[in-house]
Amino acid sequence: MMVKMKPRVDCIIADGDLGIVVDVAQEIGIPVQFRAISACCIWAFYAVPNMIQAWELPIKANNSFHSIL
């Protein structure tokens, strides 16, 4: 009789939207080899700190959404 073995997970390729996958992988000791995110997300990571420093964020309550655009 042949015993069927389950394949072992060596690494994870995670999408940037699934941040919890990265946390779980680190918790159980599986390396995350690649994390794909869109160019829009990369822009946000770089732009948001500058927007906070320029007092553009957080958006003030007295500004309407349309006036910001």
Results as ranks from 00 to 15, higher is better:
Ile52Trp: 03
Ser38Tyr: 01
Ala47Gly: 02
Gly19His: 10
Ala44Arg: 08
Ala61Val: 13
Ala39Tyr: 07
Leu18Asp: 13
Phe65Met: 15
Gln26Leu: 06
His66Gln: 07
Asn62Leu: 13
Gly16His: 05
Glu27His: 05
Cys41Arg: 06
Gln53Glu: 10
Gly19Asp: 12
Gln26Phe: 04
Ala44Gln: 10
His66Ser: 08
Val22Arg: 10
Gly19Leu: 04
Ala36Lys: 02
Glu56Asp: 09
Ile28Cys: 06
Ile20Trp: 11
Val21Glu: 01
Ile42Leu: 10
Ala54Pro: 00
Lys60Trp: 07
Val22Ala: 14
Ala61Gln: 14
Cys40Ala: 13
Asn50Val: 11
Asp17Lys: 11
Ala47Cys: 11
Pro49Glu: 02
Ala47Met: 14
Val21Leu: 08
Gly19Glu: 10
Asp17Gln: 11
Ile68Arg: 08
Gly29Thr: 00
Phe65Ser: 05
Ser64Gln: 04
Phe34Gln: 02
Val32Pro: 07
Gln33Cys: 10
Glu56Leu: 15
Ile59Asn: 07
Glu27Ile: 00
Ile20Thr: 10
Pro49Arg: 01
Ala44Gly: 01
Glu27Lys: 11
Tyr46Trp: 05
Phe45Pro: 05
Ile28Phe: 03
Val21Met: 05
Ile30Asp: 04
Ala36Gly: 03
Ala61Cys: 09
Ala36Ile: 01
Cys41Gln: 07
Gly19Pro: 01
Asp17Ile: 08
Asp17Thr: 06
Gly29Arg: 00
Val48Ala: 11
Ala47Glu: 14
Trp55Ile: 11
Lys60Arg: 13
Ala39Cys: 07
Phe45Ile: 15
Ser38Met: 04
Ile52His: 12
Gln26Cys: 04
Phe45Gln: 13
Phe45Ala: 08
Ala61Ile: 07
Ala25Gly: 05
Val48Asn: 03
Gln33Thr: 08
Ile37Cys: 04
Ser64Tyr: 07
Pro49Cys: 03
Ser67Cys: 06
Glu56Cys: 09
Ala61Gly: 02
Leu18His: 08
Ile37Asn: 04
Met51Val: 09
Val21Cys: 04
Ile30Arg: 01
Trp55Phe: 12
Val48Thr: 09
Ala61His: 13
Asn62Pro: 00
Lys60Thr: 12
Cys40Trp: 07
Val32Gly: 07
Ala47Arg: 11
Ile28Tyr: 02
Gln33His: 08
Leu57Met: 12
Ala36Phe: 08
Trp55Leu: 15
Phe45Tyr: 15
Phe45Val: 06
Ser64Asp: 13
Ile68Val: 05
Ser38Asn: 09
Ala61Tyr: 11
Pro49Gln: 01
Ile37Trp: 00
Val32Gln: 06
Gly29Cys: 05
Ala44Lys: 04
Leu57Pro: 09
Val32Tyr: 03
Tyr46Thr: 09
Ile37Gly: 01
Phe65His: 08
Gln53Arg: 15
Pro31Ser: 02
Asn63Glu: 12
Ala61Thr: 14
Asn62Asp: 11
Trp43Phe: 13
Gly19Ile: 02
Val48Phe: 07
Pro58Phe: 11
Ala36Met: 06
Trp55Val: 10
Ala54Asp: 14
Gln26Pro: 01
Asp23Lys: 06
Ala47Lys: 09
Ala36Ser: 12
Asp23Leu: 06
Ile52Asn: 02
